[in-house]
Amino acid sequence: MPARGYNGRTAYIFIAPMLIVVCAFVLLPVGGTVWLSFLREVTYLPAKFVGLGNFSRLIRDENFWQSLKFTAAFTGVCVPLEVVLGLCFALILNERIPMRNLIRATILVPWAVPTIVSARTWELIYNYSYGLANYVTQAVGLSDQPINWLGSPASAFVALVVADVWKTTPFVAIILLAGLQTIPEGIYEHAKVDGAGLTQRFLKITLPLLKPALAVVLIFRSIDTVRILDLIYVLTNGGPGGSTTSLSLLGYKYFNEGDFGYGSAIAVVVFLLAFVLSISYLRATGFGKVFK
């Protein structure tokens, strides 16, 4: 039996459990959602097939474009921030620092706090009259008036970014840390002998070898940011004036108000967006080589 030849039967045995759970609990409902996106499905109206009607309605819907813009901007700002910061954290944690194990566990804390709670915590931090953020800015002298953090589209955006980056950077750090473990110490020693400096070693060795882990991080962070819901639901509920409505929040509203067809169409758009992003990351990081 050739070790790397075509090996269908064995492979399917290994992969079957995953396929079964995914088909039963994800593929079928997803199929249902896609089907609903072609219907006018409102709880109190007779269901009707409308083809691409929901999607053409999306194109004409200003709120949809506003949400799309917000979601794109939010993803564009959050994901790079999280990855850069998470990479720094992972690099630090990979070094021999004092109390390394304890520190590694503590940086997981933000990720470990349930989103529904951390969103509430940030709500309290941004509170206008007794929040920590205003207390600190006033105590440090950055501002003599309390700031209404969630009050303008720009500051609400920043507030959401900070909360999201805080929450998810540990996730990035943990995956990248595991990735760093796959880089043998010896390579660095060689490079050192060859006279490569700190930056050079990072750019020439660490980064290229970290690409698969980076791809995973980029993909999963982008997916999660594109469909962000809980944090925004709690902190701004889309305000002020609808400026922070993410696509998922928009879709959520329609699901909640009983228009399942239109809600499903939005879900399909979220999916397409996340999928296109994922593919492009795989391309950019050369992760596709795994499949060669």
Binding site: R4, G5, Y6, N7, G8, T10, A11, Y12, F14, I15, M18, L19, V22, V26, L27, P29, V30, T33, L36, I219, I223, V226, R227, L229, S248, G251, Y252, F255, G263, S264, A267, V270, F271, A274, F275, S278, I279, G288, F291
Partner: peptide
């Protein structure tokens, strides 16, 4: 292992996970 559907399965599983929970 090399087998048919290696890449589609990997990507498919990933793609499916991008659907918002509310729709499922």
């Amino acid at each position: 292992l090399r087998f048919r559907g290696r890449m589609p399965i990997s990507l498919g599983v990933l793609a499916l996970s991008t659907f918002p929970q509310i729709s499922l």
